[in-house]
Design a protein around this nucleic acid. Structure first.
Ligand SMILES: [Mn+2]
Ligand SMILES: [Mn+2]
Ligand SMILES: [Zn+2]
Ligand SMILES: [Zn+2]
Lengths: 138, 138
DNA sequence: TTAAACTTTGCAATGGCATTGCATTGTAAC
DNA sequence: GTTACAATGCAATGCCATTGCAAAGTTTAA
């Protein structure tokens, strides 16, 4: 049933349309963060802009977060922690695998303390480690 | 004199043309990392693509490094440490100021240890802290 | 029930930036 | 001087994010 998916959307105050259920379902089946183009291919022939706006809505409502992994293409992944509409609370390190091209969320990896120069004050940090993932380094 | 600039280029095996001397001089006078567009404005009416290729050459020869600060626009700064043609050795944290928009190299800030999941191996890391810089947090 | 109001979707278009191709100009070697 | 190579300028392309607007769908309230 779609009940599970529907509830997930409703819990984040997102109107559960057919398209949004499809997108959520697709996102949930991915093993790593996906790009808009990935989503487009996976849900063809759905319209790219509609998918884009769906992701935007999901992000605004704390259901997914966008990831800048340095490839120049934004990736998206479902928020694992307790995010709410208007406020995300899932800061974590990301990992980009140079072999398979996969981008992973590492929510268990401790965010390290970065000591800044005097008078520099940071309220946000983006950390992307690059190398070989578990599958590719075997 | 241009002797100083010329020597800097030659030391990195870069042919010291007039354009390259101008670009190097401009880079050296900046207080933070600049974009290609910044360079274009500062050196008008020099051609954008020529400037782009000049930066590329500088980067390949270990004179400047490019910075992905998450704004979507690549920034460039002179390498402070010992970089050589073909191999950079100046990994450091960067800082993006949300008020003035400046991107800073923080070569003195210790790169923190990031503990990855089993079998994940990283040989590169991009860390960008965001907030207010020394000037803007006063 | 039906009209109005609001939301979602689809398609076309725009804009920014990185990157490449190619012809022209400049420079160095022979 | 002629040839070979390097650097520059201009035009063009490609990719991705983002917006405008009209059509289709859904909810609300007369
Ligand atoms: Mn993530
Ligand atoms: Mn730097
Ligand atoms: Zn991998
Ligand atoms: Zn600042």
């Amino acid at each position: 049933m779609n009940g599970q998916l529907e509830n997930t959307l409703k819990a984040k105050q997102i109107n559960p349309t057919a398209m949004r259920l499809l997108v959520l379902n697709f996102l949930q089946t991915q093993s790593y963060a996906i790009s808009l183009t990935d989503l487009e291919k996976g849900l063809a022939p759905a319209d790219r802009v509609t998918l884009y706006r769906t992701l935007k809505t999901f992000e605004e409502n704390g259901l997914v977060h966008s990831i800048d992994d340095g490839t120049g293409v934004t990736k998206y992944a479902i928020c694992k922690e307790h995010c709410h509409p208007g406020e995300h609370d899932d800061v974590h390190v990301h990992f980009f695998c140079k072999k398979c091209g996969g981008t992973f969320c590492l929510p268990k990896t401790q965010i390290p303390e970065v000591i800044l120069p005097v008078n520099f004050h940071s309220d946000e940090i983006n950390i992307v480690a690059k190398g070989l993932c578990g599958q590719c380094s075997g």
